[in-house]
């Protein structure tokens, strides 16, 4: 334990306070770039609209696929929009820089600071404007729920929120692990594209995929925990076991990524020396 913190809890508290500063700074920064805010909002809305096109077309040819109605899938698109919005706000601005950190030697400067380097690299930069996509996602989710005649109770909402959170942690862990490959591969710039392309599978319910792919989307690339399971929880047909499994997975994934980061750091030999 560093002398900065008396206990492990103090250390977590200090990092939380630090993160709050990052957020406050990001908000101030955003107010300087109002055009950026507006473009992000517009592009987000257009992308949301176009993202729904395949779903709407599909349900023009049938009223139900694998037990999912159109309204439920629209609710799922809302959850997907919320999740991708949160990732784009808090995680993407950081992991997209991973190659720069490692190949330009910026990591040196981070390692010298009295802060967990992994925390700093994963959460330092925040793109506040992307939060507008979270807002539009919530709107779409509500529209979907109303159309589907679903009125989830408090317990179900808690289930959904916990599932979305663990899904976010899981996805961040997977993306981090993919970016940390930069330690061994040097350039991983395009890896963000692979991640985001795979994420697209979260736009559709799990049962829309063949069994083998479902397994992949639950255990290897766990986007199911972020979108399909929360919506099923809101519909009231999911037990607490799935929620517990999600939380358990999230904890394990965090520990594994932590381990991978430590291993990666051992191979890091700065860029300029």
């Amino acid at each position: 334990m560093s002398p900065l913190d008396r206990t492990w809890w103090h250390k977590q508290w200090r990092h939380l306070r630090l993160w709050r500063r990052f957020f406050a700074q990001a908000v101030v920064r955003e107010t300087h770039f109002r055009a950026h805010f507006l473009t992000t909002l517009l592009v987000g809305l257009v992308q949301l609209g176009l993202g729904i096109v395949p779903t709407l077309l599909l349900f023009g040819f049938t009223s139900e696929v694998g037990g999912w109605s159109r309204a439920e899938v629209i609710a799922l698109v809302g959850v997907f929009q919320i999740v991708t919005g949160l990732m784009a706000t808090f995680v993407a601005p950081n992991l997209n820089r991973m190659t720069t950190y490692l190949t330009e030697g910026e990591l040196d400067g981070v390692l010298l600071r009295p802060v967990s380097s992994q925390f700093y690299l994963t959460l330092r930069w925040i793109n506040v404007a992307e939060l507008t996509n979270v807002a539009s996602g919530i709107a779409v989710l509500v529209i979907g729920l109303v159309q589907a005649d679903l009125a989830p109770g408090v317990g179900q909402i808690v289930q959904a929120v916990v599932l979305v959170s663990s899904g976010l942690v899981l996805l961040t862990a997977v993306w981090s692990a993919m970016s940390f490959l930069a330690f061994w591969l040097q350039s991983v710039n395009p890896i963000g594209f692979v991640f985001l392309s795979l994420m697209e599978a979260g736009r559709y319910p799990l049962v829309f995929f063949p069994v083998a792919v479902r397994t992949f989307l639950t255990f290897a690339f766990p986007v199911a925990f972020a979108t399909t399971f929360p919506v099923r929880a809101l519909a009231g047909d999911l037990g607490w076991e799935t929620v517990a499994v999600g939380v358990g997975f999230a904890v394990v994934a965090m520990l594994l990524v932590r381990l991978l980061w430590r291993r990666g750091l051992l191979t890091y030999s700065s860029a300029s020396s």
């Binding site: 599909l58 040819f61 049938t62 995929f209 792919v213």
Partner: peptide
Amino acid sequence: LIWRTALASGAQL
């Protein structure tokens, strides 16, 4: 995969 599932579940494309 999505469209094949739709076809398999009886969508009239």
